[in-house]
């Protein structure tokens, strides 16, 4: 029969056909997996990143299938295994950080703790996320510097996303003198907050005497503002609070010391 005809060595026509079918099957499986992956991750990953992930999975399946059919074609893969193992170890050591960054990048794209445009703090770096690549994340710091952080570092560091929630709270400590009327100061501060459009009505701002300090009665002021505008509100209100309190006769306290002398001080006045 033609199927049992030897083509070369011990490889028959049947072997060639089974190899072809296996490879074809692997291609179909790879296509099915990547199509499903595209549907599942379409919303979660950008087109560019999804394309890279699809290619990695597609080629991995095909290469695996190709290596598995080599013995059928009479090619001994044990030599490949030894050589591949050694090359693998060398490449593994050399590309440890590259693979680490790539895998971290994939997880970052799936988990999405940060998005492009977010204001974030990653480790010691704070700024706007400019881009998230497969290998690294690009940050534009608040003072305009370009910082490239490898994804492995991003993934293992603490990430603080400053704008993922729609509102955030900030706080001042306003110290007034012991001679000042804290109730009056609280009333004035509450009125200032009420008049500021971007200071949220709800969650309600909190203004209260927190502690009686060494030099001042410390009033805590807690205000909620939209995450996108909180810093502007924070900068604006503190100065208004300071001015308004002073206009109303309330002094902002600063450290003072009263020195008592055991003996009466003598003063000599020169003509």
């Amino acid at each position: 029969m033609i199927l049992n005809t030897v083509v070369y060595s011990t490889v028959t026509v049947m072997d060639l056909i089974s190899v072809l079918f296996t490879l074809l099957f692997a291609i179909i499986i790879a296509k099915l997996i990547t199509t499903n992956l595209r549907r599942t991750l379409k919303e979660k990953l950008s087109k560019e990143h999804l394309g890279i992930l699809e290619k990695i999975i597609n080629y991995s399946i095909i290469i695996f299938a190709f290596l598995s059919v080599l013995p059928v074609l009479g090619i001994n893969t044990s030599g490949f295994l030894v050589a591949g193992g050694i090359i693998g170890i060398i490449i593994g050591f050399a590309s440890q950080s590259i693979v680490g960054n790539m895998i971290s990048g994939i997880f970052l794209m799936i988990e999405r703790p940060v998005k492009i445009g977010n204001q974030v703090t990653i480790g010691d770096t704070s700024g706007f996320v400019e881009d998230i690549n497969i290998m690294s994340t690009i940050i534009r710091t608040f003072d305009g510097l370009y910082v490239r952080i490898p994804n492995e570092k991003v993934f293992t560091n603490d990430i603080t996303n400053l704008v993922v929630n729609v509102a955030r709270r900030f706080e001042y400590v306003v110290g007034i003198t012991y001679a000042g009327d804290a109730d009056k100061a609280i009333g004035i501060i509450k009125k200032i907050i009420e008049e500021e459009p971007l200071a949220l009505k709800n969650p309600e701002p909190a203004v209260f005497v927190d502690n009686l300090g060494d030099n001042a009665v410390n009033i805590i002021v807690r205000i909620w503002a939209p995450s996108t505008h909180w810093y502007g509100v924070k900068r604006k209100l503190l100065w208004i609070i300071k001015h308004t309190l002073e206009e109303n006769g309330l002094e902002i306290a600063f450290p003072q010391s009263t020195v008592w002398f055991a003996n009466e001080m003598k003063m000599r006045v020169n003509d």
């Binding site: 971007l198 969650p203 909620w224």
Partner: peptide, 19 residues
């Protein structure tokens, strides 16, 4: 008129609204 904003819902899932 006076302007004011507020939060409808909580900080993580809520919405900033004109109040």
């Amino acid at each position: 008129m006076k302007q004011k904003l507020t939060l409808y819902g909580d900080a993580s899932n809520g919405l900033i609204c004109k109040y």
